[in-house]
């Protein structure tokens, strides 16, 4: 009977010699290449150490603040609402409302911009480049900065928060939508073109069914993260749960802070679970 594997009979040396004869560069990885591979890791570790030193992230500093931190955590137990349950829960609802309305505004703004930003739809390379860089410029401005500006213009309150979320998310969603449209399979569109469909029909029957679930899932993801952002905007004056939280941290009422944080975490988990279910249904169902 023939051998199961002809190379098993070869000695280690013969095996390597034979392979080197065929492809000398492939057998052993050159030293330079290896040094480069390890060098990257060494450099990264070095850079991290330098960065830590630069931002004063040393064990001594950590230990100093840690005592305070422990005291605050001690003050959190037992969590206590001090008779303000209704007020806290309605602030949570206000924050959720801010997140929902900000996301809705952002979705409506981002749909046309997403279509414009897809290079499969706007094929002119320079136009595509300029549109996308324009989004990048606005994407660089975070919701917090918008909120600070808008609160000065419109005064304290949720209006500034909602508009700030929308402004920050329009370029973000526009980029995500544009990429979803670009990555979508062109074959269905070919099918509709071949069946005699016009340009609008191609978009309606070839593109929309493909990208709609993806876009919806991305929008839900943005809603999830906006619930967190909205809480932060509350701290700078947009109201809602952020405001309640900030007020109580300032007076060291850590038992009430703990109550709010627990209630907030439960809401976030609920929202994430529901939206995850919807998203997986949209993509697979």
């Amino acid at each position: 009977m023939t051998t199961i594997n002809p190379y098993l009979n070869l000695s280690r040396q013969d095996l390597i010699a034979k392979a080197i004869a065929i492809a000398p560069k492939l057998v052993s990885i050159p030293i330079s290449r290896r040094l480069l591979n390890y060098g990257v890791w060494v450099l990264a570790a070095l850079a991290f150490a330098l960065l830590c030193k630069n931002v004063d992230m040393t064990p001594a500093v950590f230990a100093k603040g840690f005592k305070n931190l422990l005291r605050f955590f001690g003050g959190m137990f037992p969590p206590e609402a001090a008779g303000q349950e209704i007020r806290i829960l309605s602030a949570l609802a206000a924050t959720f409302a801010m997140a929902v309305s900000g996301t809705f505004l952002a979705i409506f703004g981002a749909i046309p911009l997403g279509l414009l930003g897809a290079k499969t739809l706007v094929k002119q390379p320079l136009a595509h480049f300029l549109i996308r860089r324009f989004y990048d410029v606005f994407r660089a401005i975070p919701a917090l900065v918008w909120a600070l500006i808008l609160i000065v213009a419109y005064g304290l309150g949720p209006f500034a928060g909602v508009v700030a979320l929308a402004f920050a998310d329009i370029p973000r969603l526009a980029k995500l939508y544009a990429e979803a449209i670009e990555n979508c399979d062109p074959k269905p569109q070919d099918g509709i073109l071949a069946a005699g469909g016009e340009r609008v029909a191609i978009l309606r029957f070839g593109l929309v069914p493909e990208v709609l679930p993806v876009m919806a899932s991305q929008s839900l993801y943005v809603l999830e993260s906006n619930f967190r952002h909205a809480a932060i905007l509350g701290i700078v004056g947009a109201g809602g749960i952020g405001f309640e939280l900030e007020e109580r941290i300032r007076i060291f009422a850590f038992d009430q802070v703990a109550w709010i944080v627990i209630a907030y975490v439960i809401c976030v988990m609920l929202l994430d679970t529901i939206s995850e279910k919807i998203r997986s249904h949209l993509i697979h169902g």
Partner: peptide
Amino acid sequence: IEERARAILE
């Protein structure tokens, strides 16, 4: 290295 050599022969 002998595994790489074998893979190349395969």
